[in-house]
Amino acid sequence: MVADQDGFPAPERGLVVTQFLTVRVVKVSREFYADIFGGRVVLEENPALVQVANTWIILNPGGGPTPDKPGVTLTAPEAGDPVSAFLNVRVADIAAFYAEARAKGAQFLTEPLDRGAELRCYLRDPDGYLIEIGQVTGLLHGITAEVSPRP
């Protein structure tokens, strides 16, 4: 079912980069990205496609190899899996985003912390994908090194 076909990422030239996430329950993940990040549902299922700001997130259940990806099995992360990639979201006001997302049920690993070059915090989506939320601060003033947290 198409929810908003006008927002489908199909460039007339060049390219568009989207993020594909293997999820356990498409509806739960689709609602998370639409609600927490103010996303616009472009496709509801098979796959779900949510436009979040200037990017698109594709949400689909896992599965085994196909002719175009032989030997590849897609699965959602399991609890405790090492992280090798994550979504990186930049916001204009991290305090406001943090408060609004928590009010909607988002569970953060920590509150926003000042890392010198930026303020940042992390949350996980319903499938356990890590999402960094950051607001650039010191980087705008030439501070590139991260500040070590105080014990």
Rank of each mutant, 00 (worst) to 15 (best):
V72I: 14
D114L: 00
A53C: 10
V72S: 03
G128D: 07
D93R: 07
Q51I: 04
A53G: 05
A103H: 05
V17L: 14
A76Y: 03
E132I: 03
Y129D: 02
C121A: 12
P11M: 07
T144D: 13
E12D: 14
P65D: 11
I131L: 08
L123G: 00
P9E: 09
T137W: 01
P77Y: 07
V89H: 01
L87H: 03
E111A: 13
L109V: 15
G128Q: 07
A96M: 11
D127V: 11
R24F: 00
I94T: 11
I131V: 15
F20H: 14
L139Y: 13
D93H: 02
D81Y: 07
A79M: 09
P112N: 12
T66V: 13
Q51D: 02
G7V: 02
R102N: 08
G62T: 10
T66M: 11
G138W: 04
P82M: 13
L49I: 14
I133F: 03
L119A: 04
R30T: 11
D6Q: 14
Q107D: 13
V2C: 11
L139S: 09
G105Y: 04
P61M: 11
A79L: 05
P151D: 05
I131T: 11
R150W: 06
L123I: 09
A103D: 10
R40H: 10
V26S: 04
N46E: 07
E100K: 05
Q107C: 09
M1W: 01
R40D: 08
P67N: 11
L87V: 13
A53L: 05
V50D: 04
I58H: 05
I131Y: 04
V41E: 05
R115W: 13
T110P: 01
Q107G: 10
K27N: 08
F37C: 02
Q5S: 14
F37Q: 02
G134P: 00
I143G: 03
W56L: 01
A34Q: 08
W56R: 07
V50M: 02
V23P: 02
